[in-house]
Design a protein around this nucleic acid. Structure first.
Lengths: 154, 154
DNA sequence: CGATATAGTTACGAGATGTAATTAATATTC
DNA sequence: GAATATTAATTACATCTCGTAACTATATCG
């Protein structure tokens, strides 16, 4: 008995431990590419949504705009992403992935997919699908409280 | 379509989002008790394992011993936990929860349990059990790589 | 006894995340 | 159309979590 059985009844605890395992592992997988979980996510979303603005990207990834700035500085410094002034709104930048970035993202994506499969060993396809469903349900349970609060103070 | 569909195929991404939701929420639940997720976890494990040493506690929670020091300083300063020199090993401390700590932990535990149920709304008991199983499987998949590495360099 | 290991600590750094205030550009309003 | 407010990005700053290396004191082993 591992001593933390009192905490194992909580989804939050099991999830913290599982996520820590994944994050440590995926960061090790991404290190050879010069990426981490967060920069990989940013790169992937821009690649999938070329021309995205920083505010939209922050919204999609649920991070604050200021935190995005340094991440984009990093990716831009690595020549993986470009910031181009938007013609229709010269305050905003259009984000795009460079050719170099596209190539790197593709290889990293394969590596992360393999990693994800590795972390899912022992789970059937149905169990994996059920896990995704459960995780999204939890997210929406968390969001609904936020939304309720925001709606009540418009 | 939210723009992050490219990432939604990864357990790691869905889990990061779900865990962020839980952590934000549970910290709000614990704030009135003067606790956060981490201090609550430490307090709960000591309560469940009186006399525990710091090294053992760090091992159980999978955190580094140095990080535990400040957390225990905090809990000790709040009169929730005591460090007593072990008679058989004067380097070590025996950790115990004070009466005040026991009372607080009990109330906090109830609040966190309710919170966990709230975050699990929409999931059946079977789905919840399956979620725990999946999360533990993932943890053990992560750990097994570590173990393999350690065993290969004894 | 002397070498080595262990328990806790200190010092430090990196990464992720959040808030407040600033600047430049756009939108709104009178 | 000028004054005002809003928005995009940024800067500056603070906090939390987590990890490593080095130190002190005890303990153990040969």
């Amino acid at each position: 008995m591992s001593g933390d059985s009192i905490l194992r009844v909580f989804m939050g605890y099991d999830m913290k431990r599982a996520f820590a395992a994944i994050q440590t592992d995926v960061n090790a997988v991404l290190a050879p590419f010069g990426l981490r979980m967060l920069t990989f996510s940013v790169l992937s979303v821009i690649r999938d949504n070329p021309g995205l603005r920083q505010t939209q990207l922050a919204e999609i990834l649920a991070i604050e705009r200021p935190n995005l700035v340094l991440i984009l500085d990093e990716l831009e410094g690595l020549d993986l992403v470009t910031r181009t002034r938007a013609r229709d709104d010269r305050r905003a930048y259009e984000l795009k992935v460079t050719l170099k970035g596209r190539r790197l993202a593709e290889r990293a994506f394969t590596a992360v997919t393999e990693h994800d499969d590795r972390m899912a060993r022992g789970l059937s396809a149905e169990e994996r699908a059920a896990l995704h469903r459960a995780l999204r349900q939890i997210q929406s349970n968390g969001r609904s409280s936020d939304d309720a609060r925001q709606v009540s103070h418009p």
